[in-house]
Amino acid sequence: MVTGIFYHPSFSRRSYLTQGSRLQDFPQALEPLLHDERFVLMESPPISEDWILKVHSHELLEGVMRDTLCSTAWHSAGGVVLGAEKIALGEIRNAFAFIGAGGHHSGRDFFGGYCCFNDVVLAITVLRERYGLRRFAILDTDAHHGDGTRDLVRHDPDVLHVCLCYSSYESPDGTKVDVPVPGGLSLWQVFEGTQKDSSAPEADMDHRYYETARKAFYDRCVRFQPDLIFWYFGFDTHRGDYGDIGLTRKAYLLIAHMIKELAEKTCAGRLEVVLGGGSRSDIARHCIPPIIAVLGGVSL
């Protein structure tokens, strides 16, 4: 089976923190993957209002409709949902979903941090109602805490949510976990101009970050036995981006290999990587295509 890549042209014109710049080189930056039969590019459709209201309140929907930063939210969430559906149907093995507006800061009745609809929780809702999948594992390595996702799955024992961020927490049942990362900053600290922790040498950060992610997620996921794994991947943690904790592409590729292996071990390879934060087009161009290549079992 192939790896699905989900994208919409609007993501290149208006995406996340900037109007078009971070994804300005896509989808053409995915060459030569686009000519490899192991990959298929699909256009992200808009999510329907009916599905949105199964997850979010009417007030949130109305707020998103008024927010110009959320103009790509419908296609962003729709691509994530379609990717999950194609995996559930067995039409693709795994997926990478681009987004124009993020998801993990969007809860039942609040949104912000350039996130509008909670794409991953929408996908979980569709998979449960349409395809009978029940248990899901989420690894969130965006620079900031996935507070919206946590709000929506807090009382759901069939969702394992592990977030690498700036706090330390584990729920009594062990399914909701926050793990502090050396050098990590909250979104609010970034906006306030707080400097990242320089105590950890940058040369060591890639492996230290990867080992933190593996220790926090791998064994928990094996015990949990999900039906599908989501990796909420933000490159905002890369050197020079707004959540800089000193990472390079190496850290993301280590996690990509790890999480693909984990999906093969626990849920027949069912894995969706969802793009999160990050603002620089050069970093996007440098990091995203090799991660997609890992999903398809090739190297660039």
Score class of each variant (00 low, 15 high):
207 H>K: 10
150 R>L: 15
104 H>D: 04
256 A>H: 11
162 V>L: 01
273 V>A: 10
24 Q>C: 08
148 G>H: 02
299 S>I: 12
233 F>D: 00
155 H>T: 12
133 L>H: 00
83 G>Q: 08
171 S>T: 15
6 F>S: 02
12 S>H: 03
165 C>A: 14
272 E>W: 00
90 G>F: 06
236 D>R: 13
54 K>F: 03
6 F>Y: 11
10 S>E: 01
122 L>D: 09
47 I>F: 04
240 G>M: 10
249 R>P: 00
36 D>A: 06
252 Y>V: 05
116 C>K: 10
185 L>Q: 02
76 S>D: 04
245 I>T: 15
235 F>I: 14
163 C>H: 02
70 C>E: 07
234 G>D: 00
23 L>N: 05
245 I>N: 09
113 G>N: 10
243 G>A: 11
9 P>S: 14
199 S>C: 10
176 K>C: 05
195 Q>C: 10
71 S>L: 14
91 E>H: 02
78 G>K: 00
103 G>F: 01
297 G>P: 03
42 M>R: 12
266 T>Y: 11
25 D>Y: 07
211 E>I: 14
156 D>Q: 09
228 L>C: 01
236 D>F: 05
220 R>V: 02
155 H>G: 12
220 R>D: 04
136 F>A: 03
269 G>R: 08
17 L>A: 13
71 S>Y: 00
20 G>T: 09
180 P>Y: 05
136 F>K: 03
165 C>Q: 03
201 P>G: 15
20 G>N: 00
54 K>Q: 14
120 V>N: 02
126 V>E: 03
98 F>T: 08
78 G>T: 13
297 G>F: 05
24 Q>V: 04
16 Y>M: 12
150 R>M: 14
109 D>P: 02
99 I>S: 08
79 G>A: 07
147 D>F: 04
266 T>V: 15
105 H>S: 04
26 F>H: 03
42 M>E: 10
210 Y>H: 15
201 P>W: 12
189 Q>W: 00
16 Y>T: 04
147 D>V: 07
14 R>P: 01
214 R>M: 02
261 E>C: 07
184 G>T: 09
1 M>T: 12
237 T>D: 09
78 G>H: 06
233 F>G: 00
71 S>D: 06
300 L>K: 06
182 P>F: 15
50 D>P: 06
39 F>W: 02
293 A>E: 05
62 E>V: 13
142 D>F: 01
220 R>K: 15
196 K>I: 14
239 R>C: 09
159 V>R: 12
62 E>L: 12
57 S>K: 09
98 F>N: 07
6 F>W: 14
91 E>N: 04
205 M>S: 13
282 D>M: 11
205 M>I: 13
282 D>S: 11
134 R>V: 14
265 K>G: 06
150 R>Y: 08
132 G>W: 08
264 E>W: 10
3 T>C: 12
107 G>V: 09
12 S>P: 00
227 D>C: 10
58 H>M: 15
289 P>F: 05
198 S>K: 14
5 I>R: 01
182 P>L: 13
